[in-house]
């Protein structure tokens, strides 16, 4: 499903980060563990095509995304990858529904109002559909962010520290939500975190150590 081969990345003026090869199969949740600075976010962004790889291959669903042109990569990202960030980053100028519809619009796929309703229903926030995102609580905003990542039925959801700002109770809720949602949508979930509370929730783990 997702395969990483001989992947290396170097920030200007810094040491090169070499990533160990690994491959994930479809629908499996994985944990990407490591301390700050170990390259978790870098790897996540490389897989998500937010960062262009310099060496090595990233193969997602038979597509080597390191070989795609910029425009093709944008399109691929929109259609196959969903992101959940630590800070939810909803578009505050838009309502919840518009935020969700933005995903298919920007990915260039059909905007399906029924799909929006279904996802909101799954995440238990259907009553918030027409609320402006500035009026949401943190927890509600996080659900909207997860809904947005799920909307285009992506191949993989990449979550960057989704729980590190949360207390234990909410941490459990969010990770369960992500696990349930990805199972329900048959999506591979990759969570990059240094949050050890997640270790017993997700058995498949990749440890990034500073080489």
């Amino acid at each position: 499903m997702i395969r990483i081969e001989a992947l290396r990345y170097r920030y200007p003026g810094q040491r090169e980060i070499a990533f160990a090869d690994f491959s994930l199969s479809e629908g499996e949740p994985w944990l990407l563990l490591g301390q700050s600075g170990s390259g978790k976010t870098t790897l996540l962004h490389l897989i998500g095509g937010l960062l262009r790889s310099q060496q090595g291959q990233i193969i997602i669903k038979d597509t080597n995304i390191s070989g795609l042109s910029e425009a093709a990569l944008d399109r691929f990202r929109g259609q196959h990858i969903g992101f959940v960030f630590q800070r939810n980053h909803l578009i505050s100028a838009l309502s919840v529904r518009q935020n969700l519809l933005l995903a298919p619009y920007l990915a260039g796929v059909r905007q399906d109002a029924g799909r929006v309703e279904a996802v909101l229903e799954q995440l238990g926030i259907s009553d918030k559909a027409d609320v402006n995102v500035r009026e949401l609580s943190y927890g509600q905003a996080q659900r909207v962010a997860i809904a947005r990542a799920l909307l285009n039925r992506p191949t993989v959801i990449l979550a960057d520290e989704p729980t590190s700002a949360l207390d234990d109770n909410n941490c459990d809720k969010v990770i369960d939500l992500l696990l349930d949602a990805s199972r329900l949508n048959n999506t591979t979930l990759v969570v990059a975190t240094h949050d050890h509370r997640l270790k017993h929730k997700i058995p498949h783990q990749i440890n990034l150590t500073q080489a």
Binding site: G48, L50, E70, A71, D74, R75, R77, G78, Q79, F83, F85, R87, H89, L90, I91, S92, A93, L102, A103, L106, A107, G108, R148
Partner: peptide
């Protein structure tokens, strides 16, 4: 800038 980056992450081109 976050809005713009998020939109890019959702597949919007430059």
């Amino acid at each position: 800038q976050y809005d713009l980056a998020i939109m890019r992450s959702m597949g919007a081109g430059r």
